[in-house]
């Protein structure tokens, strides 16, 4: 087995043994479920109002009025839960001194970082797959278009991947899991707010840079069903760069 494969398996195993992944997945699914319900309820209220005003039942755009808000809110939930999914990954190895085993084995630091990332991404993708129950269950009763839903899921997956890599970086910086969560959450929130700051400075070069750095605009495009190379590049490059930083952090800790 490749070293990466061995590390992925080990991490997946600890996810399934510890209650953290189950709690995170449950909270995530519960909240997305509630969100979907609220979005549907809001949409049907609105169509009832329209029915009263116009006297005819309008065609309700589910994509726009139900799924899109759900995806935006899902992104906010991810901001909160992803750092919890990653906090253990390096912090615990350092605390328990098991890092010593990994760095004295014939595996590279790249193997370790990639292995841990892939495992976390797999768990995350599993969580997303479970959340897809909502659109699948709605499909027989309502009419909506699948492509924007699929691109939105791609967006959630990519943004989740970016968040996971940031969480991994946070975990590599400390041996305290709480500090790892706070660091990762702080960094994610900061980049999130860049999107807002970008609007404040709209039209200036600074505003452009800030909006580009924030994942929000790129995610927005994908939720609207627009797949552009530049947004995909943003996420993939962001993930690779953050994992590279994590590699540097772990590498530099070897010297001390």
């Amino acid at each position: 087995m490749s070293p990466v494969g061995a590390i992925v398996r080990k991490e997946l195993r600890s996810y399934f043994v510890s209650p953290v992944a189950y709690v995170v997945a449950s909270v995530f699914l519960l909240l997305t479920g509630l969100l979907s319900f609220l979005a549907i309820a809001t949409a049907s209220n609105r169509s009832m109002q329209l029915l009263r005003v116009q006297g005819s039942l309008p065609e309700l755009n589910l994509n726009e009025f139900v799924f899109r808000p759900v995806f935006y809110n899902m992104a906010v939930i991810l901001l909160l839960v992803v750092p919890i999914l990653t906090m253990r990954l390096f912090a615990e190895e350092k605390k328990l001194k098991t890092m010593e085993l990994l760095v004295t084995s014939p595996v590279t630091i790249t193997d370790i970082v990639v292995g841990k990332f892939v495992a976390a991404l797999t768990v995350f993708a599993g969580m997303l797959a479970l959340s897809a129950v909502a659109p699948v269950a709605l499909a027989p009763f309502a009419e909506f278009r699948w492509p924007p839903i699929l691109t939105a899921y791609l967006g959630i997956l990519l943004m989740g991947g970016l968040f996971l890599s940031a969480g991994l970086l946070g975990s590599s910086l400390t041996e305290n899991q709480i500090i790892a969560v706070i660091l990762s959450f702080g960094a994610l929130l900061l980049f999130w707010l860049f999107g807002w700051a970008g609007q404040v400075f709209a039209g200036t070069a600074l505003g452009k840079v800030l909006s580009y750095l924030s994942p929000l605009d790129h995610f927005d495009q994908l939720v609207k069903g627009l797949v552009a190379t530049k947004d995909l590049v943003y996420f993939v490059a962001g993930i690779v760069f953050t994992l590279f930083l994590t590699h540097r952090v772990i590498e530099s800790q070897r010297w001390r």
């Binding site: 080990k10 600890s14 043994v17 510890s18 328990l96 001194k97 098991t98 890092m99 085993l101 004295t104």
Partner: peptide, 11 residues
């Protein structure tokens, strides 16, 4: 290599 603190995954 056996480090001072055995690197064990206790779970």
């Amino acid at each position: 290599y056996l480090p001072e603190i055995p690197p064990l995954y206790t779970e």
